[in-house]
């Protein structure tokens, strides 16, 4: 288990997946950006298996296009409950080829 193996980009993995993106209608939203700015853990930036959350200086940037719809971000945001999480509209989002 060398460190070399760790330098993987999640985008390379997500590239293999099939998505029907519901443009301009993200199914997950951050309720209050200010809360993320003061959040000391920001576990969403580590735990999301699709790397949808990216930490910036004064906020966390969420991009849902690669979302695998697992629910992790909602469950782990225990301090602030700051994730508004819905399933995508019918027919949109990840469409697993194999599952």
């Amino acid at each position: 288990m060398s460190d070399k193996a760790v330098s993987i980009k999640v985008e390379d993995k997500l590239y293999q997946n099939r998505y029907l993106v519901d443009a301009e209608r993200p199914h997950i939203q951050i309720k209050d950006e200010a809360l993320c700015a003061s959040c000391t853990t920001r576990q969403c930036t580590v735990c999301c298996p699709a790397g949808c959350y990216e930490g910036a200086a004064d906020k966390v940037v969420l991009t849902t296009d690669g979302c695998l719809e697992c629910g992790t971000c909602r469950v782990i945001c225990t301090t602030h409950r700051n994730v508004e999480w819905e399933y995508p509209r019918g027919g949109y989002g990840i469409q697993f080829k194999f599952g």
């Binding site: 760790v6 993995k13 853990t41 576990q43 580590v46 735990c47 999301c48 298996p49 469950v75």
Partner: peptide
Amino acid sequence: LLSDFMTQKITPYQLLEQLKAH
């Protein structure tokens, strides 16, 4: 467990990469 992931600094995909590289 998610409660364990919350205390770690390793992403799920890094964990999988390490397993595959074992």
